[in-house]
Design a protein around this nucleic acid. Structure first.
Lengths: 204, 204
DNA sequence: GTCATTTTATACCAAATCGCATAAAAACAT
DNA sequence: ATGTTTTTATGCGATTTGGTATAAAATGAC
């Protein structure tokens, strides 16, 4: 056991809660348009404290993104558990994602779409780290969908087919996050998503 | 006929060519991360000239976006003409869009995805004009796909079905533009797109 | 209590930002 | 030529940017 004795002046803020607030600011305004002053105002901290806890602006953003990714995948995984069969589980996941994108969860307070899809593309072309982060997010979703299909599949689909279907579903969800950001309501999005799931993973 | 006599000092630059260059800068860096100095350097003009010709930064961006939208739709329409049947035409359109997204056309010099999908989402939540522009881009694509399906359809699909299919295809293409921006190569994207088209518009 | 350590708060800095004021330059009208 | 009009070029200027230096404050160690 490492000693966890706190030396020096104690922090006035909770790191996770602060990172949640940071996430919200980036989620709304994107990366470039967010200033450290905005973040300071929203978190109640001042810039030196922010820098001490999370490093540079980019480092802060990437940490918020990781946190978003983890929380989103927990959220979707839980939703997937609540139904049966590939078709049903995928619809539940789509529904949960759309709730997230349209501001109907505790994680998302407003219809800001997907943090990654809404903010990373504008940075990806000028910053390899941002591009890598985008690629990682996309691949993580691909892998998650593939493993669900693989698990629920009655050996009907070959592995390449599984991968292809998973990518198709990711495509659809990314497109849906764009539409959520453009103002489309949750019900319309769910109709779209369900019909996409039905055509890709028909009920057996 | 209004007299088109040019009064005053003649311009040293071509407006369309300059707008093309402006478009490239926004395409690569997004809206917020692009500075007027960058644009000035890239176009060879100085800021007052830019302002005189195109107005504010946002006005410049929206004009570049309109130009992109028009040129893209010409590009896709031409591609659609080159094939027969709903399935074939849609595949040709997808292929042309992917060429555009991956920097394989004269319009796009690099694999920067779609100007609209790569840059607008990050601005949409804080600026209603940007959100409206994003919505307009999405709807324009929906309408284009719907009219193609409607035209090629042998009265098999009802109008709501046509709209739904069109939106599905838009979803797919938006997702593909995200992947293009994340670095996926053109061939992989085309495989994805073709298989999506086959499942949504099967050959009769 | 005194020292070491860590966080906070204020203030600063150099660079970059958008927009515009001002004046020179280049054309046409008369 | 002289004046009018439009574009160019230089440069200002107030604001904002990300990051940090400095010092005060708050804790534990001894």
């Amino acid at each position: 056991m490492t000693q966890t004795n706190k030396r020096g002046r104690p922090r006035k803020f909770d790191e996770d809660e602060t990172l949640d607030r940071i996430m919200q600011v980036f989620w709304k305004h994107g990366y470039a348009a967010t200033s450290l002053d905005q973040i300071a105002a929203e978190t109640g901290l001042n810039r030196p404290s922010l820098y001490g806890a999370f490093g540079s602006k980019k480092s802060m953003f990437l940490q918020a993104l990781d946190r978003f990714s983890d929380q989103m995948h927990v959220h979707l995984r839980e939703a997937g558990m609540s139904a049966k069969g590939a078709n049903g589980r995928m619809k539940a996941i789509m529904s949960a994602a759309i709730d997230l994108y349209t501001g109907r969860t505790r994680l998302s307070g407003a219809p800001y779409g997907c943090l990654a899809i809404s903010t990373l593309p504008s940075e990806a072309a000028q910053d390899p780290e941002m591009q890598a982060a985008l690629e990682k997010m996309v691949h993580r979703m691909d892998k998650g969908f593939a493993s669900l299909i693989r698990y629920e599949n009655g050996t009907n689909l070959t592995e390449p087919d599984i991968q292809a279907k998973a990518q198709q579903l990711s495509l659809v969800l990314h497109g849906i996050s764009i539409r959520a950001r453009s103002g489309t309501d949750a019900n319309s999005l769910k109709q779209l998503a369900y019909s996409a799931v039905d055509s890709l993973l028909p009920v057996t």
